[in-house]
Computed example of a mutant assay.
Amino acid sequence: MKLSLFGGDVAYMVTLGVASLPVAAALVGSVLLALGWFQVGELLGGRATLGAAAAEVFRLPLRATLWVLRHALDVPLFGARPLSPVGDAVNAGRSPAASVAAIDRAVASGGDGGRAADAGPADVRGAHVKPAVPAVVGPDETWLLVNGIVETKAMARASARLITDLTGRSVTVVYNPSLGLGMDLAECLLGRTLDTASRPSEGLADLVQAQLALGRVVVLLGHSQGGIIVANAVRTLCARGLADAGVLASLRRLEVYTFASAADEAHAVPSADGTLVPFAEHFGAEWDAVSRLGALTFSGWAPAVRGVTIKPETWNGRVHVLRAEAGEGKRPEDWQGHLVKEHLWPALVGGAFGADSVFMAKYGLHRGAAKTKSS
């Protein structure tokens, strides 16, 4: 990241993080204490052993804590909002960057592993569902980007401009405001580990559904914490699709692409022909800690650490991995790969992710261009 461009933004985020640290510590501490008390009840046998009334004694603090936090974060101040009119992100009548045959070959490549590479995975959705396929190019495309933690509006807009340079598409940032590192991590804890619906994810689901209802293809991108918000929004849309055939049909026009996603799930539902919708692809660096905590592990690409349960039915989408240099020792740069502008976009355009991606086959208009350098 060039401090000459974002030095003021970095200083602001550091100051905000320090100022909000006591509040963040109190929030995370209260959740962990309540969660620990709940685990004590589970170790004692839970409802089956203790009975309903006694088990509720161990559950009640966690329920109350999550209820308070959920409503505290539900105020409009914390809601994600587009930084520019969504109409500015509608790209009319754009052609794919490659032929349909090239896109089909990218689909067939299956990424670098994970559940979506299977020809027909069986899971709790009942049948051998078909892998997701990208939507046909419609008359209009709406491009939306959800930012990661500790990003200012200027940083998020810079990422959107780089996407425009790469794809030729206009992009609207659905900005999730940062409240400092500690508060952002607390929000990640609620949205990812505890699956708590948030104002940003619910608002994003409404926005995407409205764009789909207009007959548009929606290209939804999320970086880091943005991957969590996107995952929760998609989960909401899938639930709505199961209750409404019209919403389910529209999900064929939703494409989800995440970068260094911290999410532990990526939901999909079978459409009328059994194909999983929406289509999804995920990009992450092999040794990026956030990707390891999220997409790389829960897609099945990386082995899960002890105590982590992988649920294949909650992951949809092929995975593309920026691999470290081969050799006996790790170089310092091998541990990089989390930042979009500095690491992931240049690697994507340069072909360093290995198997060609559907995203690049369909939208990568500037592959190999000079615009790959960080901005």
Rank of each mutant, 00 (worst) to 15 (best):
L185R: 06
L365S: 12
A302S: 12
A243L: 12
P85L: 08
D334W: 09
A108T: 10
F58V: 08
V107W: 06
A108F: 08
K311N: 15
V18E: 01
E281G: 10
E265Q: 15
L73N: 05
A135D: 07
A156G: 06
T142Y: 02
A361S: 10
A304N: 09
V18W: 01
R192H: 08
V358D: 01
D288G: 09
G93M: 13
K371A: 11
A289P: 05
A97R: 03
G327R: 10
K130W: 05
A369L: 01
V136T: 11
R161D: 15
N91S: 08
A160P: 05
V349R: 08
A285G: 15
D195M: 02
S159I: 15
E187P: 00
A89M: 09
G168T: 09
R367H: 04
A132S: 15
V136L: 10
T49F: 04
T193R: 14
V137D: 12
P61N: 13
G294L: 13
L251P: 02
G29N: 00
L73A: 08
L212W: 07
Y12F: 11
A156N: 04
L43H: 10
A263Q: 14
A64F: 00
H223N: 13
D112T: 07
L251M: 07
A205H: 02
V75E: 14
W345M: 14
F6L: 07
V234E: 01
K153R: 15
A160R: 12
P121K: 06
H282W: 04
E56G: 12
L43C: 04
G337M: 10
L60A: 15
A268G: 09
V150R: 10
I149F: 05
A72N: 03
A213I: 02
S291V: 03
L293E: 14
S201R: 02
G227R: 13
G7E: 02
G79C: 11
E255S: 11
D195F: 00
